[in-house]
Design a protein around this nucleic acid. Structure first.
Lengths: 289, 289
DNA sequence: TTAACTTTGAAATTTAACTACAAAGCCGCA
DNA sequence: TGCGGCTTTGTAGTTAAATTTCAAAGTTAA
């Protein structure tokens, strides 16, 4: 759509510019946030060039003029709130690494959102909606994800369980057939025990939906692989993000299934929420606003 | 920092504006993307008011002038890739509700990121880092969150468990004392059984960290309440988002504890990751790129 | 070293934003 | 209902900023 990162674009174009225009580029790259509020004379002065040069610089970058350029720059800077991968520094304050963790999480969500293929999701949703029984398999950090998924699908009145014990998985797996679906969840796509179970299941003709990185053994085995590829392993980011991403993908599947099974079910999710009220205690006093 | 959502701000301020300024507001709200490239005369004409009125409109919103306003608007629109709360429509395509779910998740993350108080986090991290033993309590959708949390803190060599069985909680709770910490996790902050356990625990002098909405009984009881307040309950958003938010907050706490216990531990998280390799199977063939 | 071309900036021009002020509308009080 | 004070809105003029023109300075190659 538009330039996600104008600054990067300027840096790349820098080489092709004239000498004095490069001065402008350098200043803009160094002080992008200030430039937004500058007038053309100020920028010209700061970059030690003349005003027309600034205009030529803007035109060279494909903009209408100085105003247009500033507008684009403003947009670029705003969107670019740097949801980049983070690297923790042992000197970081709480506030700093809080920011980093959240931003990296958001960055990953944005990436995966783009990456997810609607057709594949549709396929998975169809399979889940028509399944006689659904089972979720995963180990380690993925075990809680499976529990959560089962919890969610229960609410949709889907018959399901989750197992994070290889023996239980194996025992259960052989009892399934082509009317059933299993969802195998793995951050690595290479967990031996999980692969073992999936191979067992495949023999029975059961549909296998996998949430894992692409190009891994699990992805190859799955009937419907949903690829979750994170940016390369910077620090702990992967470790923390992938389970959350898996959860969100499960949410998407659950909503899809709910909608397929009939619009009433979407409401059912809400109803259950209400029925849980009885397990709650209410305040005795009015809320402190 | 800056206006996360200028349009919402305009909509709110609309009431306090003069009649002709409201016309401007209406046009801006209806065609925000066009306004960016408009001159003051164009906007004045479109809104059927005079130019000074447009300027007054900008000033009323607290901006320097028209240019300044346009700049802010541009920024707002760029960042505002609408991480708004969503409302599902039964006619939505997979692709559409995928977008909605992810965006709402991201919106909630952004909100909570701002909302989290670093001092409270610091306090919680201190308590966790110095605890003899840590236990995580939660029910329903929060149970998997507890499991995940325990999993994560185990990696930090912290002695911990998670219970989602009220009896187990109660039994375990009475064995704790002021050297210990429990983390109570609840989306509602009103779950009866959880409140019961927490009251038991409090008598022993154990520190109680709570992840729940503010103003709830649980938040009142906790020694260190970490407030997770989502926007009001639009559709399913809350249901889906809060557990993810809880997970991310736990991540922040875990990283904080890791850093407190010594920088070596941050590496330890990575080491464990490597040690898990033995449980994995590698590809036999080169990856299909 | 000079002719052709490219790059750059000073000054003039144009354009758009802003200000001052006056007209129109609104409200309360006689 | 009419009149004085107050608020709101627009007209016309002013100022400021962006853009264009054009000439000077710099660069390259024969």
């Amino acid at each position: 759509m538009n330039s996600v990162n104008l600054l990067k674009l300027i840096a790349e174009a820098r080489e092709d510019l004239r000498k004095s225009e490069q001065k402008v580029a350098d200043f803009v790259l160094a002080n992008p946030n200030d430039v937004i509020h500058m007038r053309i004379v100020d920028l010209a002065a700061e970059a030690e060039v003349s005003e027309p040069t600034v205009v030529r610089f803007c035109r060279a970058l494909g903009h209408e003029g100085f105003q247009d350029f500033k507008l684009m720059l403003a947009q670029g800077l705003a969107s670019n709130t740097n949801f980049e991968q983070f690297s923790l520094d042992s000197k970081d304050t709480v506030s700093e690494f809080k920011e980093k963790i959240f931003d990296s999480m958001i960055g990953n969500l944005l990436n995966i959102k783009e990456q997810l293929n609607p057709e594949t999701l549709e396929e998975a949703i169809d399979a889940l909606a028509n399944a006689r029984r659904v089972e979720f398999y995963g180990f380690g950090a993925s075990a809680p994800v499976c529990t959560d998924a089962a919890h969610k699908f229960h609410r949709l009145k889907v018959s399901c369980t989750s197992y994070s014990d290889p023996h239980m998985q194996a025992i259960s797996a052989v009892s399934l057939d082509d009317r059933d679906v299993i969802v195998a969840i793995s951050q690595t796509g290479r967990t031996k025990d999980l692969l073992h179970t999936v191979k067992l299941v495949k023999e029975t003709g059961t549909t296998v939906i996998a949430l894992c990185p692409s190009g891994t053994p699990l992805a190859e085995l799955a009937s419907i692989p949903i690829h979750i590829d994170l940016e390369e392993d910077k620090d702990l980011s992967t470790l923390m993000s992938s389970r959350v991403l898996h959860l969100v993908v499960i949410d998407v599947l659950a909503v899809g299934v709910a909608m397929k099974l009939g619009p009433g079910l979407v409401d059912h999710l809400k109803t259950i929420k209400r029925s849980l009220r009885s397990l709650r205690q209410n305040d005795k006093r009015p809320p402190v606003s």
